[in-house]
Simulated scan of single mutants.
Amino acid sequence: MKKLTIICGLALLGAACTKEAGLTYTEKDKIYFVYSYLYYGKVIEYDKVLFSFGKHPDDIIRDTAKIPVRVMGQQAAKDRQYHFSIDKDSTTAKEGVHYEVLNPQQTFGKGLFTDTLRVVALRSQLSSSHIKQENARLRLRMESSDDFDKGTTRGAVIDLYINNYLSEPKWWKKYEGFGLSYYHPEKWKILMQFHPSFRDENADYPMDANLVGTYISSLRSYLANIPTYDQETHARVLIDKLVP
Score class of each variant (00 low, 15 high):
residue 103 N to I: 12
residue 185 P to D: 06
residue 95 E to W: 05
residue 166 L to S: 08
residue 178 F to M: 00
residue 111 G to V: 04
residue 205 Y to M: 12
residue 244 P to Y: 04
residue 80 R to Q: 14
residue 97 V to E: 15
residue 171 W to L: 10
residue 180 L to S: 05
residue 153 T to H: 03
residue 158 I to F: 06
residue 117 L to K: 09
residue 190 I to T: 02
residue 9 G to F: 02
residue 173 K to R: 15
residue 165 Y to P: 09
residue 196 P to C: 00
residue 30 K to M: 05
residue 235 A to C: 01
residue 133 Q to C: 08
residue 180 L to I: 02
residue 230 D to Y: 01
residue 108 F to S: 00
residue 98 H to A: 12
residue 98 H to E: 15
residue 19 K to D: 13
residue 23 L to W: 03
residue 141 R to L: 07
residue 107 T to P: 13
residue 205 Y to Q: 13
residue 241 K to F: 06
residue 202 N to A: 08
residue 17 C to I: 15
residue 128 S to Q: 11
residue 37 Y to V: 00
residue 229 Y to K: 12
residue 243 V to Y: 04
residue 98 H to Y: 14
residue 35 Y to K: 15
residue 117 L to R: 09
residue 90 S to R: 14
residue 38 L to E: 08
residue 148 F to C: 02
residue 121 A to T: 07
residue 59 D to E: 13
residue 25 Y to R: 11
residue 102 L to V: 03
residue 137 R to T: 09
residue 14 G to N: 08
residue 123 R to W: 02
residue 1 M to Q: 05
residue 93 A to V: 11
residue 224 A to V: 00
residue 189 K to G: 00
residue 147 D to M: 05
residue 3 K to T: 04
residue 166 L to A: 07
residue 87 D to K: 04
residue 166 L to Q: 12
residue 138 L to W: 11
residue 89 D to S: 09
residue 127 S to A: 07
residue 212 V to I: 04
residue 74 Q to I: 02
residue 26 T to Y: 11
residue 11 A to V: 05
residue 63 D to C: 07
residue 122 L to E: 15
residue 28 K to E: 04
residue 154 R to F: 04
residue 134 E to H: 01
residue 33 F to N: 05
residue 169 P to G: 01
residue 106 Q to I: 05
residue 68 P to S: 13
residue 18 T to L: 14
residue 190 I to E: 07
residue 244 P to E: 06
residue 80 R to G: 00
residue 106 Q to S: 03
residue 8 C to P: 15
residue 204 D to N: 14
residue 177 G to K: 07
residue 186 E to R: 06
residue 138 L to V: 05
residue 185 P to K: 05
residue 132 K to W: 04
residue 123 R to F: 02
residue 167 S to L: 10
residue 43 V to N: 15
residue 5 T to N: 09
residue 207 M to E: 15
residue 185 P to N: 01
residue 240 D to N: 14
residue 111 G to R: 10
residue 188 W to R: 14
residue 4 L to N: 09
